[in-house]
Design a protein around this nucleic acid. Sequence first.
DNA 1: AGTGCGCCTTGATTTTGATCAACTCTGTTA
DNA 2: TAACAGAGTTGATCAAAATCAAGGCGCACT
Lengths: 238, 238
Amino acid sequence: MTSHYRPPCQACASCDTRKMAVCAALQDDEVSELERAMSFVRLDPNASLVEEGDPRRRVYTLTSGMLRLSLALPDGRRQITGFLMPGDYLGLADDETYAQTAEAVVPSGLCSFSIRDMDNLVERYPRLRDRLHLMTRAALRQARETQMILGRLAPSEKVASFLLIMSNRAAAHGRPESPVHLPMTRTDIADYLGLTIETVSRTFTKLKTQGLIRLPEPHSVEIVDKSRLAAVAGITLQ
Amino acid sequence: MTSHYRPPCQACASCDTRKMAVCAALQDDEVSELERAMSFVRLDPNASLVEEGDPRRRVYTLTSGMLRLSLALPDGRRQITGFLMPGDYLGLADDETYAQTAEAVVPSGLCSFSIRDMDNLVERYPRLRDRLHLMTRAALRQARETQMILGRLAPSEKVASFLLIMSNRAAAHGRPESPVHLPMTRTDIADYLGLTIETVSRTFTKLKTQGLIRLPEPHSVEIVDKSRLAAVAGITLQ
DNA sequence: AGTGCGCCTTGATTTTGATCAACTCTGTTA
DNA sequence: TAACAGAGTTGATCAAAATCAAGGCGCACT
């Protein structure tokens, strides 16, 4: 399920997420120090990296693939609190234990650090700590936007917002705004938006029928009319 | 609506929230430095302290009363993202501008600092910065718990969870677990839980009929059977 | 005392999204 | 090649919460 290995030296220099992740706070010569403390993890689809309640011993930066973060209820209900994309950091919110489960959506790669090493690095490089704080604050703002989506938007507004958010995030990663690649399943989307899988599927069909999107395949969504889709979303997106 | 004044010296020494707020990171002799930069603000009920989108110039610590944080949609729909209680900090998530509106629920008092002063203080007292980061992480965990409540709980589970959370927070402030004082309106509760005011009201009535709570008055809820209420909430609370 | 307003509760009705169920499609395995 | 599993879509039905509507209560203001 999971494999660990020491990367070759200078891996960071050619890393895609070098300018997006927490390590962007460091200069090229400083990153080598990060690199020495780092080990690399590969995850197969649906493999779990950390479980809610596990002691927090390591933190991670996602370099490729996608992770879903989720909370579970005793009866099996699940809320996905977010999807991590390359450059995102796993462990921003956590204290003694992980507050949520993290699983791979697709094959994923991560840089991994012991919290001991990371604490040392953060101590030595204050800009690293500042950037972590910045990322935590951004995550908090995002979580609150999601509260709005969950609490006050209708299903089509939820799905439209989700598509626009994913499109914006793709653009921020230098990928095209459209078509949006949605690697997660309909069940994941439903558990993120507080809907059922049937409602998600029907809403996609409705948006397609209205000519706002096209669905060349289930995991690829072409945004045909972005402004009308934004109108459906009901919120002005960043 | 709002009044500002310089407090008398040594106000912090006798402050109720001295051990809960961010200033708990400082020793008694260091707090005086905080005190010099501080001014005090009083808010009448429903007065707005900051508005979503306003430039962020000051940060605050609530010392008495209660604030609601909210996001609004163009069409007037509103999502309350949280309620601040004494000791809580306003401005954890915000960057250049405030990400949400903050209004007083009841008459409230706050310590106020310019971000310039606070940045200086944080620079001088690293424990202050560490505590702010800690509070931000706690807020993020709380926001994610709220995502679960909004996305996956049924109305009675939402209301039961809300009551238990408010009860726990009261206890953390040294107030009795029950009766819980809920200073906010039913509309506020509805906008926090993603429900309508009618559903909130009916759910209170139902919990009362089931003998789980008593409602001596609308803003006071006595928890009669905490374990059964927790069972209704469906989640194991911290 | 009377009036009006805000807030809360309760009832009737409607609508929406969940649930239940069937079916397609794709890819894997026997 | 057939059988099967998993994911997605679609349809029918049902239940639950929103909406619409009315009324009560407490409080401020005249």
